[in-house]
Design a protein around this nucleic acid. Structure first.
Lengths: 147, 147
DNA sequence: ATGCATTTGCGAATGATTCCCATTAAAGGA
DNA sequence: TCCTTTAATGGGAATCATTCGCAAATGCAT
C-alpha cells in the first residue's frame, strides 16, 4: 500500500466516504498508475489483487474518486475513458500519434491565454482540455529546434 | 439544396465516392448545421426530409465525409460524437457550462504556442484539440474586462 | 439500357458504462 | 466488543452510441 494511496484514502474519508476493502485496493492501483490506464485496465490490475472485486465497483469507485477530485477522467481518442491520479500541478497531454504514448506537459503561457480568451468571449474559465497530437521528430529534424 | 451542400457533394465525387440520394440529403443537412449536432440529431433532420434513410447510413456517410475531410467529428463531453461541417479556418471551442452552448473561437497565439510546445518536446504538431469550459460572466462582472 | 461494384436498410452485435437490488460490510454508539 | 443504521458491493440486466453482416437496391461507366 503506497503513500499516495493513503493520501487518496484519507481524502476519501474526509469527503465522508466509507473506506472499504475494494476502495483501498482501487486507490492503490490508481495511485501507482503512471500510464493513464482505461477502466478495464484498472479492473484487470485490481482483479489481480482481489479477483472478487466487480467491474461495477471499479466504475463506481472511480466516479467517487473523480467527484472528490482525486482522479481525473480523460477521454482522449474516441471511446473509453482513461484515468490518472490527480496531481496538484495541472498539466495537459501530448499524444505520440505513432506509438500512442501519452506525454504530460505544462505551459504557463497557454494557460494564461486560455483564461484571457475565455474572458474576451464573456466567460469565466472553469476548466479546459487540451490535447496535442504529434509525430516524433527524427534526430536530424531536431537540429533547428528554435528558442 | 444549399451551395455548401453542393460543395460537399462535389468533393465527395472527386474523392471517388458515389453520389446517392441519401448522401445528397445528409450533405444538405450537415452543410446547414451551425450548431454542432450529434449524429442522432442529424438523423432526425435527415428523416424529416426522407424518412426512409436509416441511422446506419447516416453514421456511414458521416464517416465517409469525415474521412474525406468534409466534416469534423468532435467528442466534447462524454459520450456522443458531435458533427460540424469542416471550414477552411481552424477554430477551437468553448462550452458554456450553464447552457451547454458551443462557442467557436480562434487564437493565433495559442495555435503558435502549441506548435512551439510540441517542438520543445520533440514532436511535430499534427493536430490538437482544445476545449475551454466556462461560466458566463454576469454583466456587472464584465466591467473590468481587460485588454 | 446492362453489368457490377457500392450503398443502403434493417436488425443483430458490440463495447463501454450505468442501473437495479438483494446481500454484505463500514462506522458510530451502547 | 456487539448492535444498528446506512452506504457499498456483486453480478447480471439494461442502456446508449456505434458498428457489422448481408440481402436487396441503386449509381455509374459502358
Amino acid at each position: 500500500m503506497s503513500d499516495a494511496a493513503d493520501v487518496l484514502i484519507e481524502h476519501c474519508r474526509e469527503a465522508g466516504q466509507r473506506i472499504t476493502g475494494p476502495r483501498r485496493i482501487i486507490a492503490d492501483v490508481v495511485a501507482k498508475a503512471d500510464d493513464h490506464p482505461d477502466v478495464t485496465e484498472i479492473y484487470r490490475r485490481v482483479a489481480a489483487i482481489d479477483p472478487g472485486i466487480s467491474l461495477s465497483t471499479v466504475y463506481r469507485t472511480l466516479k467517487v474518486f473523480a467527484a472528490t477530485g482525486l482522479v481525473e477522467r480523460h477521454s482522449f481518442a474516441g471511446g473509453r475513458v482513461r484515468i490518472e491520479p490527480a496531481s496538484d500541478v495541472h498539466h495537459d497531454h501530448l499524444i505520440d500519434t505513432e506509438s500512442g504514448a501519452v506525454i504530460e506537459f505544462r505551459s504557463e503561457e497557454i494557460e494564461r491565454l486560455q483564461a484571457l480568451v475565455a474572458r474576451e468571449l464573456g466567460f469565466e474559465l472553469t476548466g479546459h482540455r487540451l490535447v496535442l497530437y504529434g509525430r516524433p521528430l527524427a534526430k536530424v529534424e531536431r537540429r533547428d529546434l528554435k528558442r
